[in-house]
Write a protein that binds this DNA or RNA. Structure first.
Lengths: 112, 112
DNA sequence: GGGTTAGTGAAGCACAAACTTCACTAACCC
DNA sequence: GGGTTAGTGAAGTTTGTGCTTCACTAACCC
């Protein structure tokens, strides 16, 4: 997991939050966590058109949560670990940043 | 960081993604990472009304990303670490789940 | 070739949600 | 008390975006 400063900047996770902020895209994501699937396979249980699903995949790909490749006339979609790695690193960093600031503040307030 | 199964279920992080899926709420969140602030202080740089900002705070509070309390006539808003903890645990779990499934799949494909 | 199936691009619709205004409460200050 | 300031609730407006339809391409199959 190679993560530089750029990878951890707020703007780097924007796309992830936008992507998973939608319930349909969350469903697609969790469905792909089970197994790789085509656009058609993903669309069926959600009751939406292939076009609509294709649009969601593009958003998920932009966030690096999903990757896809054409195999024949099908598009095979799968989880891209990059997004999850970035999300985890982001949460970790923010939490530790908050913690250190909170501890510093506490030290001032509770000065002897 | 106490995290049970409930805390890690997809539905537990829905609110977090919905909350941070909006750019204004991301701004509020990062602004609060710097320091505790009132509704007025948060609204000023964003150029939105106090009413509008109050609505965003409610969404962030529902996701446990922000906590607030009334101090006099002001509402002091601050980061709630619970949301970040949950987000980190979620990303960690999903990534490890994906990794184990991916490794299992690879073992089948690359069978000797 | 002809028919079917999977997916894509452009363009439009429709609803959810971000934001506002207005009216009000309550805390602060003189 | 009277004036100002911070925030809140209800109700309306407007904009973004999720989704569709339609037309098309390309792969598969006979």
């Amino acid at each position: 997991m190679a993560l530089d400063v750029q990878t951890l900047s707020p703007s780097a996770v924007e796309g992830i939050f936008v992507a998973l902020g939608d319930s349909t895209r969350r469903s697609i994501f969790f469905s792909l966590m089970e197994r790789e699937q085509s656009i058609k396979e993903l669309a069926a249980p959600l009751g939406i058109t292939l076009t609509g699903l294709g649009q969601h995949i593009r958003v998920l790909e932009a966030a690096q949560l999903v990757s896809s490749r054409k195999v024949g006339r099908e598009r095979r979609c799968a989880i891209d670990p990059a997004g999850l790695e970035r999300l985890e690193a982001f949460a970790q960093l923010q939490r530790s940043l908050w913690r250190s600031r909170f501890d510093a503040l506490r030290r001032i307030v509770e000065a002897p």
